[in-house]
Design a binder for these strands. Structure first.
Length: 786
DNA sequence: TAGGTGATTGTTTTT
DNA sequence: CAATCACCTA
C-alpha cells in the first residue's frame, strides 16, 4: 500500500523522529498533532503535504491554513522546495475566506467586488452610526464597540442573535448600546458592499451553513485540510474547518495549548480538546522533542510555563548541547536598553560571529519599537519591523488605495469619504455631510449622490460643481478598471496631481511620502507581473486584497539580511539564533489590561506569550527590563514583571545546572560571595527589585565600549529632563577613536560647536578620507578600550 | 473652505 | 508621544 520512497526531494530519508514520521505518513482520517515549540512542526506539515502528493493526492485537493501570511509564505516555499513545480495553496483563514466570498458571496447578498474595511474604516463607520443613533462617542468609544462587535462575530452572533441575547435590558448598558449599534453598522457595511475582517469568517460560516450545495462542493474539493496553530482558532474558524471536513474527515490539526495567545480574539483552546470528540477516530500524536534551543533556554521556558495552573503538564525534551547562559538584564531606561542591545549586536557581527539576520528583538507593544528603531537607524544597521505602522497604513498610500477601492467598488463609503477631498478640491466638511445625509435618505451610493450633487439641497453651487467633477474623474478612471493595476494607479497619480503634491518639496517627510508612492506603484507592477506569469487575470480586487490582508511587504534584501523587530504575538512560529525580549516589566508583560480583568485566564495567556517569545531563541536569549520606562512621553519608574520574579525565585534550582546563570549585576560593593546562604537569596530578590540606580547591569562579557560616557549623560539628562541628550555621546575629543558603520574606524581631528550643534571632522583609517558630521545626527560611536 | 494652532485625550496583542 | 478635535483666521 505504501510505496517505498526513493525520493530525491526528501532532505534525508531518516531525518525524522518516530512521532514525526508517523505524522507525515498518516494518510486518511483525522489527525491531531500536539507539538511543543521547536519540535519540527512546520517540517512535519510540509513533508506531510509532499507525502500526500506523492501518494497521488492532487495539489488542489489540499487546503493548508496558517495564522499569519508570514507562516503561509514560508510554508508554501518549503513545500515548493520539496516538490519543485507544484503549487499548493497555503493561506490564512482570512485570505481563504475572502476568496470563497468573491466566488460564492452572491448567495448571501455580497457582490464579488466587495471592499475589505480595515480598522480605521470600521471605527469611522461606527462613529457615523453612533452619531446617527445619538450616542455620545466619548462615552461609548468606537474602539470599544468595535471590539464587542468583533467578538460577537467571532462567536457567530449575527446582529439578530446578538439582539436576542443582549437586547432590552438583558445585558449591561454597553451591551445594550452594542445591540442597537451592531445591526445598523452591519447594514451600512452591506450598503457599501463592504466587509470587515471578522465578516470574512462569519459570512463564510453562514454561507456554508445555509447553502448545502456550495458546502458539499467545497467539502469534496478540499479533500485534505491542514490547519496550523489550531489552539488559536475561534468559533467561526472552527465551524468553517468542521463543515469542510464532513464527507472525508482528512483533517490534520497541529497546535500547542501552551502557545495559545489569541484568547482576546475569541480563540478557544477548547477547540483542540474538542477535536477528539468531534472526530472520534482521531489519531493523536505528540511531538515533544525540541530541536531548536539550548538546554538553558528550554529550562527557562519550562520554569516559566510551569507556573500556569490551567495547563496539562508537558515537558520540553532538549536534544542540543549546552550553550550560553540566559541573561536577565536591567538597564536605566529604554534608550540605554536599546543602545546596549544594538551595540552588542554590532559587536557580534563585527567579530564575524553572527549576521544581522540572526537577531530578533521582541516586545509586548508596538510602541516599544520606536526607541529601538531610532537607535538602529542612527547606527545604519539594517532592520525590518514586522507589523507596526504597516506600509499600507501610511496616509498617502491609503489615499491612493482609496481611489482604487472606489474604482473597484463604487459603493465603498469609506473610500469615498477618504478621498473625496484629497487632495483638496474645494469640497468642505459640511457639504460632504449634507451629501451623505441625502445619499442615505435616497438610498444611493455616495458616488452616485456626488454625480447628482446639484440636486442635493443646501450644497453651494461651487461645491456641487466640484463634487460633479470628482464623480466624472472617478467615471473616467473606472474605464481602466479591467486593465493592469499599475496603469490605473499611474493614471490616478496623474489625474489627481498626487505626484506633484510632494515632488517639488525638499521636506524630509515629503520625500518619504514620495518614495512610499513609488513603492506602491512598484507593488502594483509586481502584482501585474506575477499574475501574468502565473497566467491569472490581473484583477483590481486581487491587488486590493493584498493591500488589506498582507501586512508586511517583504522588500528585504535577503543577501545581507537585517535585524528583525516584532511583537511577541507575531513572533509565533518563527525562530532566531539570538533573541532579545525587552521591557519585561509589570504592566507590559503581563500587560496591565490583562491583570485588571480579574480573570486568571488572561494573566496566564500573558505568561504563554512570554513563553512563546522565549522559545523562539535557538542559541542566545536575553531578557531585559529597565528602571525607568518612557510612556506617553514621560519616564516612569517601573516594576519588574512577576514573571521575572518567578524565574529568579527558581534560580537556585537553575544553579544546579552548571552553565545556567543570569548575568550578574555590577554592584558597587559585591563583597558577599556566600552563594549558599539565605542572604544570597535575599539579595537576589533585591537585584530584581532595584528601582533607582544609575548603574547599568552588564552582560558577563566585556562591555562593547566605555559605558561611563553614556551613564554620565544619562544621569544629567534625566536630571534636567532633557532626555534627548542621552543620545549624544560626549566622548568625541580631538584624537579619540570613533567608528562609523559605513566608513569604519577613524580619528577625530577637529571639533566645534556644543550639544546639538557639535560637529566633528573624522579622518578614516581605511582610505584617509575626511568627513564632517553633526554629532547628534550621525551614527558615530566611540570606540572602547581594547 | 482650507489649513493651522493649541488643547485634550487615550494607550495590547492581529487578520 | 501620538492622534484627534474644537476652534480660529485668511
Amino acid at each position: 500500500m505504501i510505496s517505498i520512497v526513493d525520493d530525491d526531494w526528501q532532505e534525508q530519508p531518516d531525518d525524522l523522529t518516530v512521532a514525526q514520521r508517523a505524522a507525515v505518513e498518516h494518510f486518511e482520517g483525522p489527525l491531531l498533532v500536539v507539538a511543543g515549540p521547536g519540535s519540527g512542526k512546520t517540517r512535519v506539515i510540509t513533508r506531510r503535504i509532499a507525502r500526500l502528493i506523492e501518494r497521488g493526492v492532487k495539489p488542489w485537493e489540499i487546503l493548508a491554513i496558517t495564522f499569519t501570511n508570514k507562516a503561509a509564505k514560508e510554508m508554501a516555499e518549503r513545500v515548493q522546495a520539496l516538490i519543485p513545480g507544484t503549487r499548493v495553496w497555503v493561506s490564512t483563514f482570512h485570505r481563504f475566506c475572502a476568496r470563497l466570498l468573491r466566488e460564492y458571496g452572491r448567495a448571501i447578498g455580497i457582490d464579488a467586488n466587495f471592499s475589505i474595511f480595515d480598522t480605521q474604516d470600521q471605527s469611522q463607520l461606527l462613529r457615523q452610526v453612533l452619531k446617527d443613533l445619538d450616542f455620545d462617542s466619548t462615552h461609548f468609544p468606537p474602539a470599544k464597540i468595535a471590539s464587542r462587535i468583533s467578538r460577537a462575530k467571532n462567536n457567530l452572533l449575527t446582529p439578530e442573535r446578538y439582539l436576542e441575547k443582549y437586547g432590552e435590558g438583558i445585558g449591561t448598558h454597553l451591551e445594550a448600546v452594542v445591540a442597537k449599534v451592531y445591526p445598523e453598522y452591519q447594514q451600512k457595511l452591506l450598503t457599501a458592499n463592504g466587509v470587515d475582517f471578522d465578516d470574512l469568517l462569519m459570512h463564510v460560516t453562514i454561507l456554508l451553513a445555509e447553502n448545502e450545495e456550495i458546502r458539499t462542493g467545497l467539502d469534496e474539493r478540499y479533500r485534505f485540510i491542514l490547519v496550523d496553530e489550531y489552539q488559536d482558532t475561534n468559533q467561526a474558524q472552527y465551524e468553517i474547518v468542521a463543515s469542510l471536513s464532513q464527507i472525508e474527515q482528512n483533517l490534520c490539526a497541529t497546535g500547542d495549548p501552551d502557545q495559545s495567545i489569541y484568547g482576546w480574539r475569541g480563540a478557544q483552546i477548547e477547540n483542540i480538546l474538542r477535536f477528539e470528540r468531534d472526530f472520534p477516530k482521531t489519531k493523536l500524536l505528540r511531538l515533544e522533542e525540541n530541536f531548536r534551543s539550548t538546554p538553558e533556554i528550554l529550562l527557562t521556558a519550562d520554569n516559566l510555563i510551569a507556573h500556569n495552573v490551567q495547563r496539562k503538564e508537558k515537558k520540553l525534551i532538549g536534544v542540543n548541547p549546552n550553550g550560553e547562559p540566559v541573561e536577565l538584564r536591567l538597564h536605566l531606561n529604554g534608550i540605554d536598553e536599546a543602545q546596549f542591545i544594538v551595540n552588542e549586536i554590532m559587536a557580534m557581527v563585527e567579530a564575524g560571529e553572527r549576521q544581522w539576520k540572526d537577531f530578533a528583538i521582541f516586545y509586548r507593544v508596538n510602541s516599544l519599537s520606536r526607541t529601538l528603531e531610532t537607535t538602529l537607524s542612527r547606527l545604519r544597521i539594517p532592520y525590518q519591523v514586522a507589523g507596526g505602522v504597516a506600509f499600507y497604513e501610511r496616509a498617502e498610500v491609503k489615499d491612493l488605495v482609496g481611489y482604487l477601492r472606489l474604482v473597484s467598488n463604487p459603493k465603498d463609503r469609506a473610500a469615498f469619504l477618504r478621498i473625496v477631498n484629497c487632495p483638496a478640491r474645494g469640497i468642505g466638511k459640511t457639504s460632504v455631510d449634507r451629501l451623505v445625509r441625502w445619499a442615505d435618505l435616497s438610498q444611493t451610493s455616495f458616488l452616485e449622490a456626488a454625480r447628482q450633487a446639484r440636486q442635493v439641497p443646501n450644497i453651494p453651487k461651487k461645491s456641487a460643481g466640484c463634487l460633479c467633477n470628482f464623480a466624472t474623474l472617478m467615471d473616467e478612471l473606472s474605464q481602466l478598471a479591467d486593465g493592469p493595476v499599475e496603469r490605473l494607479l499611474k493614471e490616478v497619480l496623474a489625474r489627481t496631481g498626487y505626484q506633484n503634491l510632494y515632488s517639488d518639496s525638499d521636506d524630509e517627510d515629503d520625500s518619504q511620502r514620495l518614495s512610499n508612492i513609488d513603492e506602491l506603484v512598484s507593488a502594483a507592477r509586481l502584482y501585474d507581473e506575477h499574475q501574468q506569469s502565473t497566467g491569472e487575470e490581473s484583477t483590481l480586487t486581487g491587488f486590493l486584497e493584498t493591500t488589506s490582508l498582507v501586512q508586511d511587504l517583504d522588500s528585504l534584501d535577503q543577501s545581507t539580511g537585517a535585524v528583525t523587530l516584532m511583537t511577541l504575538h507575531s513572533a509565533k512560529g518563527l525562530e532566531f539564533p539570538v533573541v532579545y525580549i525587552v521591557a519585561v516589566e509589570q504592566g507590559l508583560i503581563p500587560h496591565e489590561r490583562s491583570i485588571n480583568e480579574n480573570d486568571p485566564r488572561s494573566f496566564e495567556e500573558e505568561r504563554r506569550l512570554l513563553f512563546v517569545g522565549v522559545t523562539r531563541a535557538k542559541e542566545k536569549l536575553v531578557l531585559t527590563h529597565t528602571t525607568y520606562r518612557e510612556r506617553h512621553g514621560q519616564s516612569l519608574t517601573t516594576i519588574p514583571s512577576d514573571f521575572l520574579l518567578e524565574l529568579v525565585a527558581d534560580r537556585r534550582d537553575f544553579t544546579t545546572i552548571d552553565s545556567f546563570e543570569f548575568g550578574e549585576p555590577e554592584f558597587a560593593s559585591t563583597d558577599d560571595d556566600d552563594f549558599g546562604s539565605d542572604e544570597y537569596h535575599e539579595e537576589d530578590v533585591d537585584f530584581i527589585k532595584v528601582r533607582k540606580s544609575e548603574s547599568t547591569f552588564r552582560s558577563p562579557k566585556k562591555p562593547v565600549f566605555e559605558r561611563r560616557d553614556l551613564k554620565l549623560t544619562t544621569a544629567a539628562a534625566l536630571e534636567s529632563g532633557l532626555e534627548r541628550q542621552v543620545e549624544i555621546p560626549i566622548g568625541f575629543a580631538i584624537g579619540s577613536e570613533v567608528r562609523h558603520p559605513r566608513y569604519g574606524l577613524g580619528i577625530v581631528i577637529e571639533s566645534s560647536g556644543f550639544a546639538k550643534n557639535r560637529t566633528v571632522t573624522v579622518e578614516f583609517e581605511s582610505d584617509r578620507r575626511r568627513e564632517t558630521f553633526v554629532v547628534a545626527k550621525c551614527p558615530l560611536q566611540p570606540v572602547g578600550l581594547k
